[in-house]
Write a protein that binds this DNA or RNA. Structure first.
Lengths: 226, 226
DNA sequence: CGGTTTTTTAACATTATTTTAACTTTAAGA
DNA sequence: TCTTAAAGTTAAAATAATGTTAAAAAACCG
């Protein structure tokens, strides 16, 4: 993909480092967004849907590991690349032990040229494999990358939340997803919405699909099943 | 698994934090146990065999990391989930360095809702992988993940309580489950329902299965046997 | 900004599930 | 074989969970 269409979210609490990375990556043509802690990073990520997130590990408010975990829990960031930024003498292998789903580590300080080539390599590595994002079930076809759903060759329009919810259910056909699970994976752990929100979304999805492939298991949750 | 059957051991030397977590998790129906240092935690863990232990890192007498290490050395806690509780600004590289086999960590301060959903996610994550979700007995197949029961390739519908009851009996074919046991494991310890409730559910299950695989042991309980 | 779409809420309706209660039957031991 | 506690049966009542709607609130977009 072109740098021009590639969004990178940089997260660090030290303005100098942010500025350094910002400057060097913008020069390459990437779209750069900044956040100064994990909290901000999550909010911004929801908005801009970056392709790559570079997270400092130690930050106030919410550290990088925590932010990464939360990202990894949400379906919409399934194919976002996440890299940690670490001080050179930190012991990464141990940090990695926490296994929160980071794709790479970048140590600082780092020289501009090295930074840029690492970023390029990272994006290359993950755009190659992530390509197959299309799931087909019966006459239903959903493409996570294009955010599109097709039924009987007819394109259906699903806004974000509906799409995420449908996408989650379809990710494991037959499995019952509890309301808690759905909440946490579509809305995230921090967001509080009322009881009926999920139902309303389910209703809209059902309406568009025009069938009964989404089953209610009362007292448990919902599942996609044909 | 139901919250009612899930034991959580909370370990912290600050009474306020214990109380906070205790209150919020009890509200969800979990069985909560408390300890105020690593020493106590180990003793209590041996007694109650919790499913999840939340350990503060810094405590007098025995800190969380030491406690975790000892737990990990005992086979009986192989599938106990252990999470660390850390202050938000603590240095993870150090904590991580200890690599004593924690499954997760939770930063404080934490909001009640977030705490609860984190706990749920944790339990889900670790119960899903280990346990075989499909049980087959004769022509009967029950799938906890799909919440479905199939007999002779015919799908039968079991509402929640019936499903859980059947599922319990089938979890150990031949074993007699007393009414008390059934009550406590399907309904939970602090819910009081009348005497005939279990019978009615048993009746419905028998009706749907259409056989006599559920045997009554008068004065004792029920068992599933073919 | 101002219009448009998406998301959430809140009130209410509907339904499936769970429980109760009254009554009957069964089985085990005196 | 009686007695009695325990379990079975049934239908109706109670409850909880979900469905539905329209409208308010947010987010989005030029």
């Amino acid at each position: 993909m072109n740098p021009e269409n590639t969004k990178i979210l940089l997260v660090d609490d030290e303005p100098d480092i942010l500025e350094f990375m910002d400057y060097n990556l913008k020069k390459e043509g990437y779209q750069i967004f900044l956040a100064k802690n994990g909290q901000e990073a999550l909010e911004m990520a929801q908005k801009i849907k970056p392709h790559l997130i570079i997270l400092d590990i130690m930050m106030p408010v919410m550290d990088g590991i925590e932010a990464c975990r939360q990202l990894r829990n949400m379906t919409e960031f399934n194919n976002t690349v996440v890299a940690f930024l670490t001080a050179r003498n930190e012991d990464y292998s141990q940090i990695a032990g926490f296994d929160v789903g980071a794709d790479d580590y970048i140590s600082k300080p780092i020289k501009p040229r090295v930074l840029v080539s690492r970023i390029k390599a990272l994006l290359r590595r993950f755009s190659a494999n992530g390509a197959e994002e299309i799931v087909r079930i019966g006459s239903l076809e959903i493409d996570r990358e294009k955010y599109s759903v097709t039924k009987d060759n007819q394109e259906l329009v699903f806004p974000r939340k509906e799409f995420e919810l449908l996408s989650l259910l379809i990710s494991k056909p037959g499995k019952v997803f509890t309301r808690d699970e759905i909440m946490s994976r579509v809305w995230g752990d921090d967001i509080i919405v009322g009881d009926r929100t999920i139902d309303v979304h389910i209703r809209k999805i059902r309406e568009k699909l025009g069938d009964d492939s989404i089953k209610t298991i009362k007292g448990v949750g919902y599942k996609f099943d044909t």
